[in-house]
């Protein structure tokens, strides 16, 4: 790839020599990505085809790991857990974050300070988020107390009830995610030309009509982006399940996402081959989302050139 400059001392070689500086500037980054991205990805695919425990060198077993995964009850469950979590942490997030963006796009007194307060959940790390919510969702904690007039229940097992627990995870996740995606919708709304909106209003369109007829269609690139990023993030769910759910993915594995399963197989049981195989399956699932995003955003001005 590196072309050595022509030896004749002409202006073209002078320019070529100068242009080669571009290569020097990008080289450190390219080498870094080759070592810490490209190489591990290739090795990850290779490890998924091996029996490997870190203590012994990997031995090639072909597609054995994948065949085992098909019979692995925990793996099959982790797929449905992950898909459920993806559903719960995307659709409500899209709608509520867009709604919040529309609200904070309006002009009213105190808007900036209220927006800052609303945005606060984005700042703490997910471990801090889990620590706060463990207290709030204590069986007889504040959330139970707030809902008591409606439920009449003295205690609610937010985290230990197998049906409720995944919903609690989604609730906590959405609390941190909604303000973040609000910011992105807000940038999208700001990008819509003012005169388009104004002329619609002069023509007698009300707020709902301008939103659905003018703004929403123009927000399409933002929508594609929010949809794909939130899905990709949800597919990788790990930290909340690790810290917030009882017994790291429990109860009875209802919160064992594929991301958590990779950690369990790889770093709890040291079954590196199996962990790599789960990674490859997860990678394939995320690639489908990425491909959909690229397909949908073709021709959008925000798309990657």
């Amino acid at each position: 790839m590196i072309r050595f400059a022509a030896r004749k001392p002409s202006t073209t070689s002078f320019i070529a020599r100068r242009q080669r500086w571009g290569l020097y500037f990008v080289l450190p980054t390219v080498i870094f990505f080759a070592i810490f991205f490209l190489y591990p990805i290739i090795m990850g695919i290779y490890y998924s085809l091996t029996d490997f425990t870190l203590l012994r060198p990997p031995t090639f077993v072909g597609l054995q790991n994948f065949e085992d995964l098909l019979k692995d009850r925990l793996f099959l469950k982790s797929i449905s857990v992950t898909l459920g979590y993806v559903a719960g942490s995307t659709l409500p997030v899209w709608i509520l974050s867009l709604f919040a963006a529309v609200v904070f796009f309006e002009k009213f007194p105190g808007r900036e300070i209220l927006k800052m307060l609303f945005f606060a959940p984005v700042l703490p790390s997910l471990v801090v988020v889990a620590t706060i919510w463990i207290v709030l969702v204590n069986p007889n904690g504040l959330l139970t107390a707030v809902l008591r007039p409606f439920t009449g229940l003295a205690e609610i097992k937010w985290l230990t009830d197998p049906t409720l627990s995944p919903i609690t995870m989604i609730l906590v996740h959405d609390w941190t995610a909604i303000p973040f995606y609000m910011l992105i919708w807000l940038a999208g709304l700001t990008g819509i030309p003012v005169d388009l909106r104004d002329s619609a209003r002069v023509d007698g369109a009300n707020r709902l009509q301008t939103f659905f007829k003018i703004e929403l269609p123009l927000l399409r690139p933002t929508a594609v982006f929010v949809a794909s990023i939130s899905m990709i993030n949800a597919f990788q769910a790990f930290t909340l399940q690790f810290t917030l759910s009882p017994g790291r993915g429990g109860p009875v594995d209802v919160n064992t996402t594929m991301g958590l399963l990779i950690w369990k197989y790889g770093f709890q049981y040291f079954r590196m081959g199996d962990a790599a195989a789960v990674s490859v399956v997860l990678f394939a699932m995320i690639m489908i989302v990425t491909a959909l995003q690229l397909g949908l955003s073709r021709g959008d001005k925000f798309s990657i050139q």
Partner: peptide
Amino acid sequence: PFQILIVP
């Protein structure tokens, strides 16, 4: 995704 990289 980083999840893919952690094992290798």
